[in-house]
Design a protein around this nucleic acid. Structure first.
Lengths: 110, 110
DNA sequence: CTGGATCCCCGGCGATACTG
DNA sequence: CAGTATCGCCGGGGATCCAG
């Protein structure tokens, strides 16, 4: 597994990092400003606690988001974009634009 | 299933259509010009015949690509972007750009 | 509040063989 | 060349409980 061959495809590489059901949505919510764990849970409807944790860990692992722990009571954990993550902005914007343009039952045209 | 609720998220809607391991790569290869089935098979390294068929069918179903059959011998089937599919261009370009910028072992910077 | 650990099901996907 | 059919695996991901 892990296509270690193939003449290197940048698109595939990107998919490896931000692909999946949840990551784009999570990243989209993180785009504007840092978010706390439960805040993300609300902003990403339908995601389970487990999946949110897993996806955030994966994104952290790939250097897309950084995790900041405030040792307070109650605990406070903030997730924010790294520089590498910020550069995903155009992708997320383009995805938002396309999804918006092709919203079901849109009346404008089409 | 099928998040029929949630205040409508354009990013999620886009993920529903072009999400997954293969679709972005397939679409990327379709971006410049129409491609034949086996041509795509070569251009998307690692994909199986079955998956290519399934993904293409799904994309066709969602109105992203159109399938043109030339009744010749041997059979000739071409897949191309619909108008709706063309509008995915910016997303694919952004993905390519990001993947390229963060290519492992890149020397330029970072 | 954040998030780890466990249990378990379901379907995504690869492999293979067959057809027009 | 461009598919379809069938089988079987394995791991993604939901539900739930526990912990710091």
């Amino acid at each position: 597994m892990a296509e270690s061959k193939a003449p290197w495809c940048p698109v595939t590489a990107t998919v490896e990092v931000i692909g999946g059901r949840w990551k784009p949505t999570i990243l989209f919510q993180l785009k504007d400003r840092p978010r706390r764990f439960n805040e993300l849970r609300r902003l990403v409807p339908g995601i389970t606690q487990r999946m949110l944790t897993l996806q955030l860990r994966a994104l952290e692992q790939d250097g897309i988001v950084s995790r900041t722990v405030h040792n307070t009571i109650p605990p406070h954990v903030e997730y924010s974009f790294t520089k590498k993550g910020c550069m995903l902005g155009p992708i997320l914007d383009a995805m938002e634009a396309w999804g918006d343009a092709h919203r079901p039952r849109k009346r404008g045209r089409n």
